[in-house]
Structures are given as structure tokens and as C-alpha cells.
Design a binder for these strands. Sequence first.
DNA 1: CGGTCTCTTGACGGAGTTCAAAGCTAGTGG
DNA 2: CCACTAGCTTTGAACTCCGTCAAGAGACCG
Lengths: 197, 197
Amino acid sequence: MAIRIDQMLELFFQSVSKRVALTPEEEDICREFFVAKKIRKRQFILRPGEVCDTTIFVEKGLLRSYTVDERGHEYILQFAPEGWWIGDLYSFTSGEASIYNIEAVEDTEIQQLGKEDEEEMIARIPKLERFFRIKFLNACAALQRRMTLNISENTAGKYAALVRSYPDIVQRVPQHMIASYLGVSPEALSRVRKQTV
Amino acid sequence: MAIRIDQMLELFFQSVSKRVALTPEEEDICREFFVAKKIRKRQFILRPGEVCDTTIFVEKGLLRSYTVDERGHEYILQFAPEGWWIGDLYSFTSGEASIYNIEAVEDTEIQQLGKEDEEEMIARIPKLERFFRIKFLNACAALQRRMTLNISENTAGKYAALVRSYPDIVQRVPQHMIASYLGVSPEALSRVRKQTV
DNA sequence: CGGTCTCTTGACGGAGTTCAAAGCTAGTGG
DNA sequence: CCACTAGCTTTGAACTCCGTCAAGAGACCG
């Protein structure tokens, strides 16, 4: 079991190494804090009303976060394939109840990091402070562009931009989820695709 | 002139002090890096095509960032009143050309920080790494919620949420800019307001 | 092979856009 | 101090894109 966990964090260390260099000893310290979990397709990691008090790193598989309104419509905030992070950051920082579901779209393996553990890990390896700063900086950059796309483009434009940026996700995920991510109806997306193919 | 700059950074130190404690000496180091500027209403700090290679902190007044499409329509990404940061983070991290205008909505005083200077400042005051990490974490949290609002709510819902979150900005800014921030036409916003008042 | 999930297609209605014009407000200069 | 202008908001009417509802057809899995 220990071997499996070692293997699994490789993806995390890979992405860390792009920003800061960890010694083998420091990597071992990290391993103390992460908790590995396996999530079956359609299982949930977070439910609306719960507080999101962990950081989730996807090692394998694919997760999505989404809200559901009174009418039962789903609105997808994010997809998280291998190497990505996912969570409700507002709930995480404020301690308030989350509004999102986080659910496995495929069978998925994650590494989870409690809020306290994350702080302690960063305290013991200050280099990671830099890693997380840059990670959030990049996440903000992407969200800014997505925000602008979303208010400026129509259905066709938004879909085209998504295909350009994340062709892999468009392949892996049911089409109605793509629609829900773009904020349009499945029917609208179906019709747009018909034109542009 | 030196006195003026000292006064102006107070707002920055205030927001830093909520996260990490700086010594007076460290504050002096910060002062070496920031450059104070005054921007008149309708003047630009950034134009599409330029690279956004600075971080902008607003001391006084109000800025906005927005794109313009082929038809001349404006789409506002962000308003930045006193105590807020503004910039094109994607251009900043990637070095690619920006797509945004950053323009003064009111006469404004800013503190600007070059990309290299920011890195050096953080290198000399490692505590700031933590400050900026948390700043971007909170920015991401807000963008996530705004993203969800934008794809799940209609015009009335988006406007109501904005009034709830930032009543001050709704007051200070022309209504057509609020519309442009929400991604709806000025006419649509006008009609929604008529109902709900 | 039957059920669930998914995508497509059609018809209709509604929210929002577009275009145009008029009313309002505040700032400017004579 | 008033008149004029420029920017802003409102209102109306026509149009359009998209959401909604409903039905049907594949595709996949147990």
C-alpha cells in the first residue's frame, strides 16, 4: 500500500518540480500529509452544504464540480483530469458551506490534503509557498480569460474556444456536460456542433 | 514627493498586515520597488497588444479592465477601486500580448510594481510570498463564484448578486458599465432595474 | 435483451439584442 | 447664470438566439 502511494504522488512532484526543486527528504515530508483515495464513477467527494476543508489533487481519472439550481439544472464550474486541482476555494477560505458537488466522471484516484495539513506542510517546506502562489496566479489568469470569453462570446464562440484550449476534455466528457460547463442547453450545443463539423 | 509616496502605500501595508506582519524596515524595502502614478479619468494604463508586465495596486480612485470586440462592444472583466489589484494575469505570466484595456473610470492614483521588481521584493521579504499566495487564493475563490453566477443566473439574478456583493461599485459606476460587466446590454439592465426598484 | 444514458431534431415561446429616438443630467463655456 | 453639449438612461418595436418541451434514435452495460 505504501508503494502505491509513493507512485501516486509522482504527478504532484512533477508539477512542483516545474516551479521549485524539492529534495528527496522534502518529498518524503509531503508524503506524510497527503491522503490517497479511490473514487468510483458517480461517487461524490463534496456535497452542497458541506464545508470544503481539503485540497484535492487528481492523480488519475476525472472529476467535476457543479451546482444544481431549484429546477434541477446543473452548472459545471470545473473539470479536473490528471494533474489538476479541484475544490470550492470560497468555502475553503471562508469556512462557509459549499454550494458545489464534486463528483467523479470516471473512476478516479485522488490525493487529498487537509487545510491544517496543507498549512503545516508549507510551514515545513517554505519553498512550497512559492509553488502554490504561482499555481493560484495561473489559475486566476485562466479564470479571467474564461470569464471574458463567457460574457463576450455566443454558444459557438465559447465552444470553439473550449475545443481549442482543452480538446482532450471535450473528448472525454459527455456532450451535455460540456454544455453545462459553457452555460448553454444541451440542445443548443448539439445544434452548434452540427453547423461547425 | 517622498512623503507623498510614503502616505500612499499605507493602504497596501494595511492589507498586507491582515496576513503577515512587516517590520518598519521591511516596509521601507517595499517602498523602493513601487512606483506611484496619477491617472486622469479616461486615461489608459494598458492597451490591447501590449504586454502586461506590471502589477497595479489602486490607492485612490477606480480603474476598469475590459476587452472590445470587432463590433465595438465592451466587455468589462473587472473594476478596481481603492485597495484592489488589477491586471491581465494571463499576459503577465505568459508574456503574451494582452487583450484588455485598463482605463481610469475616475481620477486615480496607483502604485505599480514591475514583474522583475515584484520577484526581487518577494525574494528579499519572503513573508510576502505568503501574502500573495493568499491574495491569489481569494481572487480565485471570488472568480469561481462569479463564474458560477454568470452561467447559472439570468440578468436579474446577476444584477441582484452584484448589488449584494459590491453595492459601492454599483453606485460609483455608470449603469452601462455595470451591464457590460454582467455581459448584458444596457437596455436589458435598464429594464430589469425598472422591475426590481 | 431491456433499461439507462446520451445525442439529435422539431416546434414553440421567451429573454435578451439591436436599432432608433427621446428624455434626462451634469459639466462647460460664453 | 444660463445655454448648450455630451454622456447617460429610458422606452419602444422588431428580430434572433437560445431555452423549453417532447419525441425518437443510437449506444452501452448489466
